[in-house]
Design a protein around this nucleic acid. Structure first.
Length: 447
RNA sequence: UGGCAGGUAGCUUAAUCGGCAGAGCGUCUGAUUGUUAAUCAGAAGAGUGUCGGUUCGACUCCGACCCUGCCAGCCA
């Protein structure tokens, strides 16, 4: 009998997100119990299968007594196979419900820790492996998947070749930032990459337009809502390109990502209560602001009492400064020509004003801060050698990099975008930690 | 790393001037043929992050340490 039941149960198996195509049919759903309500001779199990949640209705008289008894006492997140007829019903959340004819309990769960009530951040983060099942987290990670897909589609269709950079690196890419050190066989040290930047410059000279996309590690002791110690970064790089090319690319790139999220993740954005109009404004052109003008804006803000501290020319913007600047625009704003002193050693200089770097930061609206950082790279061998010396970096570690200036050095440019920051912005959520399945942060390495 | 706020049942929390720790949710038992974080009735479940001090008496006051959150620096 069990065999017969199994066969019957696997007939016409469908996923919850395609129920509308099966109205009136007898279908099989495989998933987990999201919630169970009961009303005497009626049970309302809500089934979750990874594609959605559907309410099922069990009438006591319609199912075998064993099925009724098994379902009646089920705990949240029990694994469950349900068979029944698909019916459009306005009373059901989602518009469809399943009139259950039979069911099989695959595993009966008890005392699931995450209840449909409020929980604190610490508790939820400790149970991240289970928290992923809840509706909101599910929606955020679906948006992340779409952001990643959009990133790849855009670059692949725009003539870029995927050329991934290594994760183990022999030395710092950017000197200043702290690195995670690991043992690399006997006595040797390696570092986890903090940017694929330098390797991108090599592959760009081989392929023209390239990008790398992978995890990036920063051992900064930052404890803010926009920092992770392990995050994913996409870095396009173009040979024979300028700062303007980078700004044009950033504009098209971010606009494409936003349009894909709006188009493909409507349900999820609704669950997240995202104000879509905030995403619909993300279309070219983006405002471009010279660093000098950004500084003026900040200083005027201080004079009006809107900013606590007076910003002095020469510094890098802090989080409140970025928020203040981006608050003047309803689109991402591109701040360019930063002082070279606050940027990486490999940045090209403005030929008219050598104290300025040909760099750009794209500041997202709504206080999401810097989502893109990039610019043109220095082409001169002598200049780079000097910079490496000034930054007290070991020249022999950069010898291969300097080869790129010895053999066919050309103007080239690119940028890096943090996937999690971009996802948090698209979702309109407070903290970046929810935009990656298992966040790694200062003081959090588990689960 | 610095500043601020916190650690009380499984979870979210209350406890007045220092006086025997109270609730909601979840769990368990029962009722309910349309529930929407279902509802109703009943039951079990904690000695308050750790260590030390003051006191007749400490969740409450003092000190150290541990942990968490928020903000900042740094960055994507």
């Amino acid at each position: 009998m069990a065999t017969q039941m199994d066969e019957q149960l696997s007939m016409n198996q469908v996923y919850i997100n395609e129920l509308s195509k099966h109205t009136g049919q007898e279908v099989t759903l495989k998933g987990w119990l999201y919630n169970l309500r009961s009303s005497g001779k009626l049970l309302f199990p809500q089934l979750r299968d990874g594609t959605g949640i559907v309410q099922c209705v069990v009438f006591k008289k319609n199912v075998q007594p064993e099925v009724w008894d098994a379902l009646k006492g089920l705990g949240q997140e029990s694994a469950l196979i349900i068979r029944g007829a698909v019916r459009a019903d306005e009373r059901a959340p989602g518009g469809y419900e399943i009139d259950v004819s039979s069911a099989e309990v695959v595993q009966s769960a008890h005392d699931y820790p995450i209840t449909p009530k409020e929980h604190g951040t610490e508790f939820l983060m400790d149970h991240r492996h289970l928290w992923l099942r809840s509706r909101r987290q599910h929606a955020i990670l679906k948006v992340r998947a779409t952001v990643v897909k959009a990133v790849r589609d855009f670059l692949d269709n725009d003539g870029f070749t995927l050329c991934d950079a290594p994760i183990f690196t022999p030395a710092a890419c950017e000197g200043t930032t702290t690195l995670f050190e690991v043992n690399y066989f006997d006595e040797e040290k390696a570092y986890l990459t903090q940017s694929g930047q330098l390797y991108n410059e090599a592959t760009a000279a081989a392929f023209g337009k390239v990008y790398c996309f992978g995890p990036t590690f920063r051992a900064e002791k930052s404890k803010t809502r926009r920092h992770l110690t392990e995050f994913w970064m996409v870095e396009p790089e173009m040979a024979y390109a300028t700062l303007d090319d980078v700004m044009n690319l950033s504009e098209r790139f971010l606009s494409y990502i936003a349009s894909r999220v709006i188009e493909d993740r409507k349900e999820e954005l609704k669950i997240l209560e995202r104000d879509i109009s905030k995403l619909e404004t993300i279309v070219p052109p983006f405002p471009r602001l010279h660093y000098d003008d950004a500084v003026k804006m900040l200083q005027e803000g201080h004079e009006r009492g809107e900013l606590e501290n007076r910003f002095e020319w020469g510094g890098d913007f802090g989080a409140p400064d970025e928020t203040y600047i981006s608050g003047h625009f309803d689109k991402p704003v591109m701040v360019h020509h930063y002082p070279a002193a606050v940027k990486a050693f490999y940045m090209a200089r403005d030929p008219e004003r050598s104290e300025l770097a040909l760099g750009v930061d794209v500041l997202a609206p709504e206080g999401y801060g810097e989502v893109i950082g990039g610019g043109a790279r220095a082409t001169s061998l002598d200049f780079l050698r000097e910079q490496i010396a000034i930054h007290e970096l070991p020249e022999e570690a950069f010898n291969w990099y300097l080869d790129l200036r010895r053999y066919g050095s050309v103007p080239h440019a690119g940028f890096g975008m943090g996937i999690e920051r971009c996802t948090a912005w698209m979702c309109g959520i407070e903290h970046i930690r929810e935009t990656i399945p298992f966040p790694r942060m200062l003081y959090r390495l588990k689960p």
